[in-house]
Write a protein that binds this DNA or RNA. Sequence first.
RNA 1: GGUCGUUUAGCGCAGCUGGUAGCGCAUCCGCUUGACGUGCGGGAGGUCACAGGUUCAAGUCCUGUAACGACCACCA
Length: 872
Amino acid sequence: MAKELAKQYDPKNVEDRIYDFWLNGKYFHAKVEEGKPTYTIVIPPPNITGQLHMGHALDNTLQDILIRWRRMQGYDTLWLPGTDHASIATEAKIVEAMKAEGITKDDIGREAFLERAWKWKEQYGGRIIQQLKKMGSSCDWDRERFTLDEGCNKAVLEVFCRLYEKGLIYRGERIINWCPKCLTSISDAEVEYEDQAGHFWHLRYPFKDGSGYLELATTRPETLLGDTAVAVNPEDERYKDVIGKTVILPIVHREIPVVADDYVEMDFGTGVVKITPAHDPNDFEVGLRHNLPVINVMTDDAKITGDYPAYAGMDRYEARKAIVRDLEAEGALVRIEDYSHNVGTCYRCHTTVEPRVSKQWFVKMEPLAKPAIECVKSGKTKFVPERFEKTYFHWMENIKDWCISRQLWWGHRIPAYYCEDCGEVTVAKTAPSCCPKCGGKVEQDPDTLDTWFSSALWPFSTLGWPDETPELKHYFPTNTLVTGYDIIFFWVARMIFSSCEQMGREPFGTVFIHGIVRDALGRKMSKSLGNGIDPLEIIDKYGADALRFTLATGNSPGNDMRFSDEKVGASRNFANKLWNASRFILMNIGDDEIEQTLPSELALEDKWVLSLYNDLVKEVTDNLEKFELGIAVQKLYDFIWDIFCDWYIELAKIRLQAGGEEADNAKRVLVYVMTGILKLLHPFMPFITEEIWQTLPHEGESIMISAWPVYDSALSFPKEETEMERIMTAIRAIRNRRAEMNVAPSKKAKVYIATAYTDTFGKAGIFMQRLASASGFEVGESFDIEGSVSIVTADAKIYIPMGDLVDFEAEKARLSKELEAVKKDLEFVNNKLSNENFVAKAPEAVVNAQREAAAKYAEKIALLEDSIAKLG
RNA sequence: GGUCGUUUAGCGCAGCUGGUAGCGCAUCCGCUUGACGUGCGGGAGGUCACAGGUUCAAGUCCUGUAACGACCACCA
C-alpha cells in the first residue's frame, strides 16, 4: 500500500475494501483448533423481516468488540451468525403482500404459501446480513445458520419429542391469549399491557325468584353473552344469603347460579363479579372450580358467533355498543363510569388480545425452571450487570406453562400425528405411515411452534446438536451472550432452561445486558414516531468506525443511551485525529527503514509515554474483562488525544527535526506506541486501525490477527513519569500566564526556572522553547530578577522577564489572589492533619500524602510572598 | 400494588474496591505553532435531587423522601 495518506480520513475509500480483505484472508473463520482455549458468542439472530436498526448496531458493535479482542488475545474465537424465521412477523408480511394481489392463505393452500415464504426468505433474508457486514462484524459467515434450516429443524424435533416423552410437553384445552388480527395464540410473554381509557358499566342481574337483583360492574359488557355465573366472596356478609340462588342474565335471559369464590375481592366495586369462563383467564379458573359451562361467544377474528343472532357477525366493539343499548332498554344498566385499565395487546400488531379457550400445546415449566434458577444462583451463568439476575429470578419463579403452538404455517410444524379413526396421538420425529395403535390414517397437527422455541436452542442447535459434532464439543458452552434487557424473558431465560435440560449445563457463562438506544431527546426510537435513525445513513455520513465508537462510548452496561448526530461527529473527529497522527508519523519516516523495536537509548519523554502506554494496556484489558467497554474506550480516547497527540508528538518533533540518531529513536518510539494504540483500538474501530496499521511498518497480514498488547514491567518508568509531570505543570503554568496576559505565541520571552529539581528541569529547556514560547532558558536554585512575571508551581518558581508587558500592579494583585487561594488549600490540609482521629485512623499513605501536600503549599506560599515583596 | 433503575457544569454522560469532582458538545478569550481548523493553547461554569445515618473522611456505603422512567402483577 502507498505510504501517502489523505489529509482527512475518508471511510468510504477504506471500509468495503478492508472488509473484503478480511473476508479473503478468512480471518473470521474459526478453525476448531484442539487444545486452544475458545471464546464463543452466538449472535442474537435478527429477524429475516428486519432491517438493521440502532439496536442491532449497538448489540453487534459490543459483540464484535469482545470477539475481536479475544481473537487478538489468541483464543480460538467463534462468532456464530444467523437469522430467525420470525414466524408471526414474516407470515404477516407475506399475507400482506398477498393481500395486495388479492389472494389469501386459504386460496393458495399451505404448500404454495410455504413456497412463497421461502422465496421471500431467499430474497430478503440476506439483507440484514449484508447490513451487519457494513458494521464491520467479524462473524464466521461460513457457519451462518437459520432457525428454520435443516439442522435447527432437527434439533427442534428432537427437543419436542424428548420433552413430550418426559411429560414436559402436553396438549390441553386452556384459556390462552388470542390475537384476532394475527389469528393465532400467543404466549403470556408476547402480551404487552397498555393503559387504556375505558368505562365501567354497572349492571343489574335480577334474581329468578323476583327478590331483587345483584349489582355488578364490568369493563367488557359484550362478554355478558358468555356469562355462566355470578360470583361473590364466601366471607362477604352482605351476600351470605344469595349464594346458591339463581339470577337471570339480562338480554340473554339465561339462568345462571351465584357461586362463592375467594377470587372475588370484597372491597372492590360491589363485591359481585360476573363470570365468563370462555373470555377471561380468572373467570376460567373460577369456572373450573365450580364446574361452570364454558360458552364461547366469539369467532377467531373477535366477532360474535351465530349463537346470538341479534349480534352475530358484529365486531366485539360494535357488539359492545349494541349490547349496552339493549341493556339500557331492558333497564339493566345502572350507570356508566369512566375507567382506565390495563389491556393486553399483541406485541406484534398491538391488537387487543382476546382471551380464548382452545386446544393448544404447552411446555410444563416448573420442572424446567428449577435447574435454570440454580444455574444462575450457582454462578455458572452470570448477568452483567448483576441486577438483572433479580428480574430473571422473579420471572422464573413465577413462571406459568408456556403455550408453544401457533396457528401459523411459517415455522416448525408440530410433530404430532392424530389418528383419524381412533384419535390416538403419536409424537415422532418422522411421520408415521399409519396409526401405531389401530393402523388407521394419521394427520399431522396443522400448527407450528412459537418462534422462540427454536431460538431457545440456538446456542447448541447452531453447533450441530443433536449430533456430536467437533464444533459442539469444542465451542459449547458458549462464553458470552450479548443482548438487550427487553429480551431476557423471550429468549435468554428460555435458552437457559433449554440448555440445562438438553445439554445438562449452562448455555453461556455471561449474559452481557445493554440498554436500548434512544433518540437525542431520550425517546424510544419507533416507526410510529418516525424518530428512528438509520445506522446505514450514519455509516454513509461518518463511517462505521465513528458509529461503533459512539455506541461504545458512554455505554454503561444495562443502561439506555441517547444517540445524536453530534456525538457521531465527535467520534468522526477522533478518527480523523488518529488518522493525522499516523500521517505525521509516516511523513517523518518517509522511505526510511524503521526497526520495529524500541531503541536502547530512551529519552525522558520516551520513557514517560511508554510508561503511560504500558499502564493503558493493563487498564484497557482489565476494563474489557469486566465488560466496562465504555470506560475502556474513554481511556483510549484520552490517551491518544491528550497524551500521545497533544504532548508526545509535539515533544517528538524536537528530535525529528534535529535528525540523526535522535530522530531515528523518536521514530521508533512513535511507531511502537502508535502500533500499540492501533491494536488496543482495533476492536472498537476496526477499519481505520487496519488501514493505518497496513501503512506503518508491520509484521503479519492483518492487525486483526496480531497479538493483543500485554503489560511489560520493563516499560514501567515511575521516575520519568514524575519528572515529566513536573515539567508539564511548569509548561501549562507558563501558557496559562501568557494567555491571561494576551501574549501571542509568536512573542517569545526568556524563561528562568528556580527549583530544587535542577536535574529534572535541566532536561526541559528545549521543551520550554517548543511548548512554552521560550526564547531562552536557564535553570538554577534561585534567581534574583527584577521586573518579571513570576509564576509559582508546586515544584518551581518561574520568571519571565517581559519588560514593558509587565503591569506591576496587576501582577501584584494576581499574585496576592493566588496567595490567598493557596493559603486556603493549606488550611484545608492542616485542618485534616490537626485532626487526631484522621492521623490515627486513616491509612499511613493517605496521611503522608496530606503532609507532603502541606509542605508543598507552605513552600509555594513562601515563594509567592517573596515575589510580592519584590514587586515592592 | 411489587421490583428495579435514574437524579453530578447549559445539554448529553463518566466517576471501579469511600481520600479536597471529570469527559464530550455548547459557550468565552487567543492562535496561519509545516499531522490534523474534523485543529492548537487557555478560561468560565457544579452546596454531586432532598433529609438523616455510618466513618477520621461520602458523589461514592446504609435508611428514608421526592421527581422521572422501566419491568412485573388476576382487582372484575
